[in-house]
Design a binder for these strands. Structure first.
Lengths: 221, 221
DNA sequence: AAGATTATTTAGATTTGTCTAAACTTTTAA
DNA sequence: TTAAAAGTTTAGACAAATCTAAATAATCTT
């Protein structure tokens, strides 16, 4: 698999996880920041290699081999993110771009040794699960802050949008993974939410709320 | 700089350090495992970008910018080698191939943070010096075992050949960087050398001796 | 259900890095 | 000091990944 092919597989993987339909040429072009015609060409090549199944005008889906390969790339990406944050003290808005490069390094031994070195982490700095050596992904149950209930207490377990701007906003407001958050009030007018954490209150917009993932605290194992 | 360009710069850098003449097209082709015609094409491109100066039929030399870039790649290569060996427990014959990939990751911050994480190492696992952030290289004074003197005690500080086979030979014979070696006898007939270390004696061939670098022990600062 | 709009594919061109084969320099050696 | 050998460059081709523009298919709209 070349670098370009791996990036396509990863993009198809992400889009499949978002909507359950076949992935359209245009959606892929958008995701890859390229032209639809380029996508068609690449898809044909991936179909030749049995990494995707492709019906013209119908879209594309990953084959078993294609998905396995995509998961390996995702695993490497997320492990490197953990490394950058925990060992090299990158901030969580900086890790993504470098991990985009590191995810293409080809050495199973490197990946597995890195995993071990990091203590077999379960999630990356954005709360996304890290596939294990065999490609198994432990699903994390999480609720968006927009779906949280007034009066209930949650822990922040992830973000949907991992753009630098959003992560910097969270940093500036001292919200990070593990922060305990209580829902004070949900404002029906603009869907903003007033939350309380670390003994301070904060009102966040719907846009922020949509992109913050929470997990209800306690009263289960 | 693309990946291919970086590899050419690195190859030119290594060849310049070996012979002080201009680097010939054929020598580069040999080093790069490619054809002379491909080399000519690439050299022209690098000359366009002012990374090398090139006179047809005369060979090529690195420009200031070209050398600076080559040194950066070498720095990354050697830092990653230290990382793989010290942090991920790779053996010293395994680090090279993976470092060949990692050396092309583009992020100055990553390189400098990695350097710091490793404690600013001075040499890589083969005893080669690691350029600092500013491209400065601390020259290591070393003698080949073939030039060592009978009766004198040395420390092993590096290897010339870092092929997997040679390094495995050293491992099998328990020679590593830092091993103290006394020269018992130099055999003029075949230039083999009888050495003593860790209270055991060993005869090594000229080929081995040529590729082991030593430093005379004590009696200086 | 036909025409308009949108989505997708094809055709042909471009760039990067490589190759083979032929042409051309430089060096070596008689 | 030339002819042969060795080294180097040029010309023309190819594969990968991309693009633009044109053609074609699918879908919406009324």
């Amino acid at each position: 698999m070349t670098l370009a092919e791996e990036n396509y597989l990863k993009a198809i993987y992400h889009l499949e996880n978002q909507s359950s339909n076949d992935v359209s040429t245009n959606a892929l072009a958008e995701e890859m920041q390229t032209k639809a015609s380029s996508v068609t060409d690449m898809i044909k090549k991936l179909a030749e290699k049995n990494m995707v199944s492709y019906i013209p005008y119908q879209g594309v889906t990953l084959s078993k081999a294609g998905r396995a390969h995509a998961v390996k790339v995702v695993r490497k990406h997320r492990l490197w993110e953990v490394f950058l944050l925990e060992k090299l003290n990158f901030s969580w808005d900086e890790v993504h771009d470098v991990a985009e490069q590191l995810e293409h390094i080809k050495s199973e031994k490197l990946t597995d040794k890195l995993d071990e070195f990091l203590g077999f982490p379960k999630v990356d700095p954005h709360g996304d699960p890290i596939p294990d050596k065999h490609g198994h992904i432990e699903k994390i149950d999480k609720t968006s802050l927009t779906d949280a209930q007034e009066g209930v207490t949650y822990v922040c377990v992830g973000v949907h949008d991992s753009s630098s701007d959003f992560l910097k906003y969270l940093d500036a407001n001292h919200i990070s993974l593990g922060t305990t958050i209580e829902i004070i009030h949900k404002e029906p007018f603009d869907n903003s939410v007033k939350i309380k954490f670390n003994d301070a209150e904060l009102v966040v917009s719907e846009n922020v709320a949509k992109n913050l993932f929470l997990q209800e605290v306690s009263h289960n194992s």
